[in-house]
């Protein structure tokens, strides 16, 4: 009993740490790209994955999406949906980087602004780093509840009340016997 209580709490706190870390990463990446849409567009085109015409819209939408997702993760609002979108984003970045590697392109990932041609690409380091962030996003999907999340305040009120009434019943039963 005591062990499961500790586990539930420690997993929740671990989830909070993951949420804050991943949220700040996405927020930082989005803020770095937002003021430089032409450079981001150049970075997107250097991957040679998306159709040429889509690059400007993608370069504009990507930092906004990163900022929104980062904010949602930090606040703990729609956490599992935000983590799912974050995981898909990370997976697409990993595919982009590894496919550039497989095709022998020499580009910078442009993950935190910049990007385009690079004489010294760091594909392995970028892939390992993104795999770590993907693992955190998957953890946030699987763990269901994290500590200090707005989700608990806004959507889990009934569940909280159920927990409370269950514990009250147990207390009453315990006192009557």
């Amino acid at each position: 009993m005591r062990t499961s209580f500790l586990n539930e709490h420690s997993l929740g706190w671990l989830g909070l740490a993951g949420r804050l870390y991943l949220g700040f990463v996405f927020l930082t990446a989005g803020i770095a790209k937002l003021p430089e849409p032409t450079i981001t567009e150049q970075a997107v085109r250097s991957y040679q994955l998306l159709p040429w015409q889509i690059a400007p819209a993608y370069a504009l939408a990507l930092p906004i999406a990163e900022i929104v997702l980062g904010g949602l993760l930090i606040l703990g609002l729609f956490t599992r949906s935000a983590a799912t979108a974050t995981a898909l984003g990370m997976a697409s970045f990993i595919v982009g980087i590894t496919s550039a590697w497989a095709r022998g392109l020499n580009i910078d990932c442009g993950c935190f602004g910049g990007g385009g041609a690079s004489a010294d690409p760091s594909y392995l380091a970028d892939t390992i780093r993104d795999l770590g962030w993907l693992a955190i996003a998957v953890y946030l999907i699987v763990v269901r509840r994290t500590k200090l999340a707005l989700d608990d305040l806004l959507f889990r009120r009934d569940a909280a009340l159920d927990d409370y009434s269950e514990s009250s019943k147990k207390t009453e039963l315990g006192s009557s016997t």
Binding site: Q48, L49, T84, L88, A91, S92, V95, S99, A102, R103
Partner: peptide, 21 residues
């Protein structure tokens, strides 16, 4: 429905990337 959306994204990504590579 959520799974279908995610699966569509994954399948599109795989097909597009495979085509380009």
């Amino acid at each position: 429905t959520g799974y279908a959306v995610v699966a569509a994204f994954v399948v599109f990504g795989v097909v597009r990337t495979s085509w380009v590579v």
